[in-house]
Nucleic acid binder design. Sequence first.
DNA 1: AAGTGTGAAAAGTTTCACAGCG
DNA 2: CGCTGTGAAACTTTTCACACTT
Lengths: 206, 206
Amino acid sequence: MERIDIPKKAIYRLSIYHRCLQRLVEHGEETVSSSALAKVAGVKPAQLRKDLAYFGQFGTRGLGYPVAALASMIRDVLGREHLQPVVLVGAGNLGSALLRYPGFQKEGFEVIAAFDADPEAALARGVEVPVFPESELERHIVEREVRMAILCVPARVAQAVANRAVAAGVTGILNFSPVRLELPEDVMVNNVDLALELEHLSFFVR
Amino acid sequence: MERIDIPKKAIYRLSIYHRCLQRLVEHGEETVSSSALAKVAGVKPAQLRKDLAYFGQFGTRGLGYPVAALASMIRDVLGREHLQPVVLVGAGNLGSALLRYPGFQKEGFEVIAAFDADPEAALARGVEVPVFPESELERHIVEREVRMAILCVPARVAQAVANRAVAAGVTGILNFSPVRLELPEDVMVNNVDLALELEHLSFFVR
DNA sequence: AAGTGTGAAAAGTTTCACAGCG
DNA sequence: CGCTGTGAAACTTTTCACACTT
């Protein structure tokens, strides 16, 4: 696999660049220079050029990068040319807020189903995505060939739910539970620990 | 300031260690070795020891670290020995979910007030924290000497709200808006971009 | 014997600076 | 001339390995 020596952080930044490019497309821009794009993305021009260069040569010297084509190549690299189905487990407080969060849909992900121990309660929160009992998790993952799951379950059941999702075919987990999941290393886990982020801030605040 | 050459990531990990230590305290453990703690925190033992060593010598050779004392020193380093007041701006979909999120309280932060353009609507969502009109933001920040703010406002107003909060005295922002905030560099901004995290996953999923 | 603290090596990432292309 | 693409330098972070303490 050639992407073995691409810095992980560069992948993150690719998503940022993509979002900036989308805005440029909307504004009808045709080309953009590395310095202009770097400015709005909040990075240095050289870093932007290096990041893009990992994936090929897209710019024209003396001119810049073609906005639309660059956006398309990033979508391609990130595996987002096509809609990715996603499931969400744990439609409680945070989970149901995420189900109503427009950002996922807007960036091209479709949350096709949610699962909860108590689907009725979740539905009562005004969620539009269908909510199923947790027991049906595996069936939906297999049937729709789902690769990504969002986990918003309580800490004590997180590991068990993750194991089940992975056994059914999930290889990427966005984990909101404050727990370090132990999973096969070919499963990508992305932890978003809200309390941790706040703690981190408090070190710098004084 | 001596903490100039402490890796930023080490600060993040300190929070993780702290959470693991809390669990050990609950289980009545008195001491823990670097390898045991590293295991549950998901890092290598040498890294754990190095991280802790940035702040002093806390372990006993041949024995390990005293659980309670180590937890206390981390709280001290992170500025969390005392309760930190926090405000939240934008009590919409995501914001009101965060107001009901137990994790912040549990980790020792007190969200003392929330602000929204439409406080009535926010209150209707069953939030317990008092919700005020956005115009009162500055007054509360000044009166309670608030240093940290959680931002959940729509992208287009994020910069303006951030400017106001900073002008009133905030120096740390946990930003959920998908926008790169431009602020004085003594202000610490911690971006949590949910759609971005999902995008990042999709690169590794295939 | 068990386990910390730490220099030094290795690995990973960012920045520089400039050659080279359009 | 302007701006990309990129090797090499600088910097940051992680890992190793072992001296040293209890």
